[in-house]
Amino acid sequence: MTTQEALFKYTLRLGDNSIILAQRLCEWTSKGPFLEEDLALTNIALDIFGRGKSLLEYAARVENKGRNEDHLAFHRTDRQFTNNLICEQDNGDYAKSMIRQALIDCFDLMLYTELSKSKDETLVGIAAKSIKEITYHKRHSFSWVDRFGNGTEESHERAQKALNELWRFTGEFFEMEEADELLIKEGIAVDVKSFQAKWEEEIKALFLKANLTLPENVFMQTGGRKGIHTEHLAYLLAEMQALPRMYPDAKW
């Protein structure tokens, strides 16, 4: 694997994580629990889509085969997407969406903070912008986890159920493969293992404060990096890609 190939793979995966999560988040637009929250969540979806777009643009440029970000987003199959499985999980209720978001925000803030020290200038630029955004997203999702955990009996129950459902997808955050190893040596990619303990500590503190119990001895699901997804992703893509697939010659 060349550095270029590794960088393409790495950037594409970061982009996929963003696009797929944002696609889920924007399903909430106009359906939020109240107007201010609807606006906040749409804003978060916008930030994450924006990041995904920048990452896919860069991936396409690195690949240098005449594709652009829209080819990458709309003309790949589910088997060619390498996002973490947690991103594609259905929104469920607001507790599930917020727990999913908190787990991801906590990871992403650490990831992009490290990535802002990369030797790759484009990734540094994207990371710098993302850090500001994710700091706000994390404050938002963390405060909801706390509110749900310490709110009503119902909200506590829903949050605990969501945590139990989603925890099995968190192992994937810290998986690495050949492309990562190669780029870490070059000072480009982030060694996610380097902050795994810190992530676990922050997450434990969050759920302790929220009076929620972290599931134990959970078997961690995997497959995203190989393009083997949960059944959700193919449906998500069928919807997202419908128009460009139906009219491949059209420009929008």
Binding site: L39, T42, N43, F49, L56, E239, P244, Y247
Partner: peptide, 26 residues
């Protein structure tokens, strides 16, 4: 049409627009 917007740019623009409408409501 947000989930089916045919390009990433179109999706961002539409999402921002729908968000604006919510803001107007507010």
């Amino acid at each position: 049409w947000i989930s089916r917007a045919p390009s990433l740019r179109a999706k961002l623009v539409l999402l921002a627009k729908v968000q604006d409408e919510g803001g107007h409501g507010l």
